[in-house]
């Protein structure tokens, strides 16, 4: 069954300042969307508000996932429904190993899903967990010892991003938002991370790839590209839009917008 994330006329404020000013966007499983935009256009705000960061106040609009109002849910419930955010800046949690954290997360999600479904809880066994973990770590070319390191503590930029995709692989979301996953990666790391993402993508998984540059889109190829400028989606199109942006830069979008506004006025 396909699932859809629907964002309707979304307005988001941080500390009283409006950052997202009416965004409409629909992402279904089986689709890859890219959101491109210059710094400060609201890309991260959009992703944080989809997962429910408490500092981001939704003042207008709706976010629905699989027909349900996501905005009434806590972040952990959104995760258990099948939403995932790969952070641009993953947070360090000293003293907690990646493995033990992931096992807690897998079981927390199972707990909620069992409760909603009226099913008895089946916690993942240690053996099953470590088998899956090893498999996914292989996929991302990560050394098994990595799982015993403290979550994001002392990780290099590339390691952090890889660990984010590992978490995605273990939690198995329906819609995953990748927030600037390509930033801070060298070309080899970018290829490994992208290969991992592509391996996880399929008919039951939708991706929303947020990026400043076109780089990652050569590996993770979107069917839909949207350009976010000043809290609004200024342009939407196919993969060719990303190339045009690469060629002409974001000022070109602003010019396009200006022209169309002028055209509208004249017409």
């Amino acid at each position: 069954m396909p699932k859809t994330l629907e964002i309707r006329k979304l307005h988001v404020e941080i500390e009283g300042r409006e950052i997202i000013k009416g965004v409409d966007l629909t992402v279904s499983t089986g689709e890859i969307h890219a959101i491109m935009g210059p710094n400060g256009s609201g890309k991260s705000t959009l992703s944080y508000s989809i997962l429910g960061h408490p500092d981001y106040a939704v003042t207008q609009g709706e976010v629905l996932f699989d027909g349900e109002n996501v905005l009434d849910m806590k972040p952990d419930e959104r995760a258990a429904k099948g939403l995932f955010l790969a952070f641009q800046y993953p947070v360090e949690v000293p003293g907690v190993t990646l493995a033990s954290f992931l096992r807690t997360a897998v079981n927390s999600i199972r707990k909620k899903q069992a409760r909603w479904g009226g099913q008895p809880l089946k916690e993942i066994s240690a053996i099953e967990f470590y088998k899956r973990l090893e498999e996914k770590m292989n996929l991302l070319q990560m050394d098994p010892s990595f799982a015993q390191r403290y979550l994001n503590e002392g990780f290099s930029g590339g390691e952090k991003k890889r660990a984010e995709i590992l978490q995605m692989a273990m939690l198995g979301p329906s819609i995953a938002i990748l927030d600037e996953t390509d930033s801070g990666l060298d070309i080899d790391a970018l290829r490994i991370v992208s290969d991992g993402v592509n391996a996880l993508y399929g008919p039951d998984v939708g991706l929303l790839v947020i990026t400043h540059y076109q780089r990652i889109l050569r590996y993770v190829q979107p069917q839909f590209v949207h350009v976010l400028v000043d809290g609004r989606i200024a342009l939407s199109g196919g993969p060719e839009l990303a190339e045009q942006l690469e060629e002409h830069g974001y000022d070109w979008v602003k010019d396009q917008l200006g022209e169309s506004a002028v055209t509208r006025q004249n017409g």
Partner: peptide, 27 residues
Amino acid sequence: DEQLFYLTSRGLTEEEATAVIVSGFIE
């Protein structure tokens, strides 16, 4: 708040997330 949001966005309740942070602190 950032630690809590990160952990809850992975499916942990706020209580679970706090417990994880505390257990890491005394580890």
